[in-house]
Design a protein around this nucleic acid. Sequence first.
DNA 1: TTTAGTGTCATAATACACTATGACACTATG
DNA 2: CATAGTGTCATAGTGTATTATGACACTAAA
Lengths: 125, 125
Amino acid sequence: MDFNDTKNIFLQIRDWVADQILQGKIIAGEKIPSVRELAVDMEVNRNTVMRSYALMEEEGIIENKRGIGFFVAADAKVNLLKMQKRSFLKDELPAILHKVEVLKLNSEDLQILIQTIQSNDHENQ
Amino acid sequence: MDFNDTKNIFLQIRDWVADQILQGKIIAGEKIPSVRELAVDMEVNRNTVMRSYALMEEEGIIENKRGIGFFVAADAKVNLLKMQKRSFLKDELPAILHKVEVLKLNSEDLQILIQTIQSNDHENQ
DNA sequence: TTTAGTGTCATAATACACTATGACACTATG
DNA sequence: CATAGTGTCATAGTGTATTATGACACTAAA
């Protein structure tokens, strides 16, 4: 995995797992990669993955069955959606707005973004 | 100043100064706060501010007059606009797009963002 | 029972951001 | 000249992320 220098690795691992769940690539009740396995895959130390998993367990996203491994919590996806949506609108959006204003980005610059938003409008579920 | 735990302080200071320039609060040729002064203002060590200024000097945003202080470079604002716009579209926008898709954010959620973009469309300069 | 796979804990070492502090050269101003 | 304000460098200490490694308890399966 290609990590970003500006963000802690254990947070990026948590973000990656959360993204897998949000995308439905790992579903509720399913086992996630073991600490050792993911550490090897991502070329990272066991302890670093362990820290990510411990954090996610605190957040109620995953659960541990001792001797077996970690599993996606029953309502992980719904909670993740709620948490991340709230966090995005409250913390990230203001910074984005500020940049859009200062850099004077217009519909042409952000064409893809507007299209993506509009395609979300046409979804019924 | 209120710093974000997830990003290095010396980078946040650079971002803050760059933002002041982009907003026109500090213009070309103007002196920026001295290393010691800004360090006291932001309750940070001299060396940390020094690191931010050294970075900005490398980037050609500010220039040093020895014994006097740092000054905004002549074409700092234009270059900052170019650099940050490129960086935003290349690095930040893809991540934003991904979140908008996964969280299924629609025009209602991002109403303010769309308004801001549209108001930039109506600017002629 | 033995084996392999889980998480977990403890320890030590490395790297780096940040702090604290002192000293020095330079410039403007009295 | 002396003084105060600039940046700059060196040194040492602190905190923390990350690595490296070993050991242990638990579980499933041969």
